[in-house]
């Protein structure tokens, strides 16, 4: 508990100049020094302060900072489903490995498939994946549906209304893929956020809902899980021992994760390979640090979902998301 220090926003604001309301970390960049890092590393978080990404970031950097011997200074740029944060990071920060972005590879990459950002999406690289939270299908405790078969057979008779936090989301892709595979008709209804999606299922306004399973686990007895979009239901009983889609339906759907990882300018990787190497190595060490589990649990994380991934795993996931986004683009954009 002491790790969560009294001063919540521990960032020391040395040298963070603000321009246009957007911090320009590189504005005060010094020429490459042998002793990297010689100052704090700015981390853009493209979601609201106090949210899940914020908590996970604090848990991870509370260990990482010891291995990197520097502080990680978060800057929150929420809005447009993460778009604002990425645009700020790619547009305003100098590619010198003194600034990173802590994003969610699932929904944020799907965003690019739906509408390309102003920068080239290959101009940044994900690394140090911290967690993977698979999407799932769930119903409210009072729903008439008992198994995924009930849902599929009803979906063959009429279009079922499916609540989701938003269309460009891995869980939405999962259910669209299920519809494609079984021939059941699913009508996705975005409910703006996880809280409303759980409410949509619990109050029975929706026939059922899809969401990242971490949020469903938190809703405890209010919901029942029917299907998980992963190769294995690592949460087991917490998700009512629901089967996975690939197991149950024999599909080959890539895991539909919400997966938090750090991102860095590709130009920074090219210009400072040594720095990137250090960021990766120390990141892995921080993840393997025995203290991380403690910090992760205190941040209200679900430990089985802590899942390290390097550059390769992240790149594979990014391209899988782009591919799935492209495949279902008409359904995600209405065009």
């Amino acid at each position: 508990m002491t790790k969560l220090t009294m001063k919540r926003r521990s960032f020391i604001k040395t040298g963070a100049a603000a321009a246009g309301g957007l911090m320009i970390g590189g504005g005060l960049a010094t020429p490459a020094l042998a002793s990297y890092p010689d100052r704090n590393i700015d981390v853009i978080i493209p979601t609201r302060e106090g949210g899940g990404a914020d908590r996970l970031f604090r848990a991870f950097t509370s260990l990482w900072k010891n291995h990197m011997n520097t502080n990680f200074e978060p800057g929150f740029f929420p809005g447009a489903s993460g778009r604002v944060g990425y645009e700020v990071y790619m547009g305003k920060y100098k590619p010198d490995a003194y600034s990173l972005i802590f994003g969610n590879m699932g929904p944020e990459v799907l965003n690019w498939a739906v509408k390309a950002p102003s920068f080239n999406i290959d101009d940044y690289i994900y690394f140090n994946r911290v967690d993977t939270d698979p999407g799932c299908v769930f119903v409210g405790a009072e729903s008439k549906f008992k198994t995924i078969d009930d849902i599929v057979s009803e979906g063959k008779k009429r279009a079922l209304n499916v609540g989701t936090s938003r269309l460009a989301h891995p869980a939405s892709i999962g259910i669209l893929a299920l519809g494609e595979h079984t021939g059941a008709k699913f009508n996705l209804v975005p409910l703006s956020g996880g809280k409303n999606t759980v409410a949509g299922a619990v109050t029975l306004e929706m026939d059922f809902c899809v969401l990242t399973s971490g949020s469903v686990i938190k809703a405890a007895d209010a919901c029942r899980t029917m299907l998980v979009f992963n190769d294995k239901n690592v949460a087991g009983e917490k998700l009512d021992n629901a089967p996975t889609m690939n197991d149950y339906f024999g599909t080959k759907l890539p895991a539909m994760f919400s997966a938090r990882a750090f991102g860095i300018h590709k130009a920074a990787v090219d210009a400072h390979p040594d720095r990137f190497e250090m960021l990766q190595k120390t990141g892995k060490k921080a993840f393997d640090d025995p203290g991380f589990k403690d910090a992760f649990l205190k941040s209200k994380g679900f430990w089985p979902y802590a899942n390290y991934g390097g550059v390769k795993e992240c790149a594979e996931f990014k391209s899988a998301m782009l591919e799935m986004g492209e495949r279902f683009k008409p359904l995600l954009t209405g065009k």
Binding site: G79, A80, S81, R83, V84, E87, L167, P190, G334
Partner: peptide, 20 residues
């Protein structure tokens, strides 16, 4: 702001800050 279903930006005058 973005439309509630397909997230098409509307009337934002190009400001990302108005997407939501």
């Amino acid at each position: 702001g973005a439309d509630h279903v397909y997230a098409t930006p509307r009337g934002t005058m190009g400001f990302l800050e108005l997407y939501d």
